[in-house]
Computed example of a mutant assay.
Amino acid sequence: MTPANLDAALGIRVRPDQEHAVAPVVKSLAEAYVHPGVAWPRLITDGGRPVGFLMAFFDIDWRLDGSVTRSGLWRLNIAAGEQGRGYGRFAVTAVAAELRRRGATRMYVTWHPGPDGPERFYLGLGFRTNGETSGGQTVGVLDLTPEPRR
């Protein structure tokens, strides 16, 4: 995120039927501001065209008592007209690569439960539920095995 692409990021909107399941980009940017060094906001572009927004988190105090820290995908907003084109998969893969680079062995995500939520998307990428919830959302975890060398 830069001053030059702020307005483009703020313009990212999911489909109206998804708005209840994911916070808008403006909330993510406010959270990134109050969690410096933990939040990792990124605008997703294709040929310079904004198509989505992601925010990862690194070593966040998961239980708010310092006993458990986790890293993962905090927010994923793919623009309404850009969904189904692989941008979400790209975003998850990019966060996983960054987490591997930082030495993480697991990647966490939460999602809105129910038939209108993104559970199928995350399970299809290899996340598994771990029986936890966070703020009423389902917690998923992806084991980050090292990528094969090419």
Rank of each mutant, 00 (worst) to 15 (best):
T45I: 02
A104Q: 15
G136F: 03
L125V: 03
D7K: 14
P36M: 09
R128F: 09
A39F: 08
G88P: 01
A80D: 11
R100W: 10
P115A: 15
G66C: 05
T93F: 04
P118W: 06
P113D: 01
G47D: 04
S28F: 01
S28V: 02
G84S: 08
A21F: 07
F90D: 10
L29R: 01
G124D: 04
F57M: 14
A56I: 03
L29S: 01
G81M: 05
R106L: 14
V25W: 00
Q137Y: 13
D143A: 15
F57L: 12
A96D: 04
A30T: 12
A4N: 13
A97T: 08
G103F: 07
E119N: 08
P24K: 12
E19F: 04
R89V: 13
G81R: 06
G81L: 03
E147D: 07
R49Y: 02
P113R: 03
G114Q: 04
S67M: 05
D7L: 14
W74E: 08
R15Y: 03
T2H: 05
G47R: 01
A23S: 14
T145A: 15
R150T: 12
V141Y: 07
A4C: 01
V92N: 01
R13K: 14
D46V: 09
L144H: 09
F57D: 05
E98V: 05
V25T: 02
Q137G: 09
G47S: 01
G140A: 02
T110I: 09
A30G: 03
R150S: 12
F121D: 05
G66P: 03
G47T: 06
F127D: 03
R128N: 12
T93Q: 13
P146S: 12
F127N: 04
A79N: 09
R100F: 09
I78D: 00
G136I: 08
P148R: 11
G66W: 05
I12L: 10
T138M: 15
N77K: 06
I44V: 14
T133W: 09
F121W: 11
V141I: 15
T2Y: 01
A32D: 08
E31D: 15
L43M: 04
A8P: 06
E19S: 11
Q137D: 15
E31W: 10
L73H: 00
V22R: 05
Q137S: 12
P50S: 05
T129M: 11
T110S: 11
V139D: 00
V14P: 03
